[in-house]
Amino acid sequence: MRGGQVSLDRRPVLRGIDLTVRPGEVVAVLGANGSGKSTLVRALLGLVPLSGGSTLLYGTPPTRFRQWWRIGYVPQRLSVGGGVPSTIREVVASGRIARQSRFRLTGQADAAATARALEAVGLADRAGDPVQALSGGQQQRVLIARALAGEPETFVMDEPTAGVDAESQQLLADTLAGLVARGRTVVLVAHELGPLEPLITRAVVLRDGCVCHDGAPPKAVGAHALPGHDHVHPHAPEKPVSPLDWRPTS
């Protein structure tokens, strides 16, 4: 992403963001409430339209991107509309959608991936329960399992630790460690890192819609403890195609 700008209701939320995520990185997007963290990751995926600049997913603009199975998006919270119950398994299995073709039935590979994802987040024994009956932390685990089921290369997680109990946070950290070990790329938005801290390879700190730090993860976490200096990162020659990239228009 280069020169990325996003405005909501004509109010600029992000200004001049340059961000390139390289394969295998574990990037934490940090910042105070309202600094535009969530908007940034959603704009990276093309879920929020840019008012300036451009964003590329594996070298392709989101509107023309066709390999969505390479990306697993974990939204901030489970939105269960209307109250039609859904079982945990149904929600997790729906993570396979980008890998399924319309006229083919759900296959064995789908069922196996769903089972693995349920196992990974420790909800396998509750797969038949409705997601509506779960606590916030457990619902968050369902969302992560949904992304896991799709077996993507890059995970984009919006506040996976917000409002999540300590047990779920540790479980998330273990799950992430497994993904990192297998060379997956992770971009996550966080208010505080908690048990995720040792996994992070790079921190991007936002303040008022601008990147105010990009580099090594800060040791002490918390808005006041963050280094205020600008840290310009020399871009590595782009041999592998970057999973996420924002490019300037002008």
């Binding site: 939204p75 729906s94 959608i97």
Partner: peptide, 22 residues
């Protein structure tokens, strides 16, 4: 029958549906 799976994702969360390329 044909679109049920995709409609399920859409009705759960429109952004996730978008990020799944639907």
């Amino acid at each position: 029958t044909v679109f049920g799976r995709e409609l399920f994702v859409l009705c759960q969360d429109e952004e996730v549906a978008k990020a799944s390329g639907l």
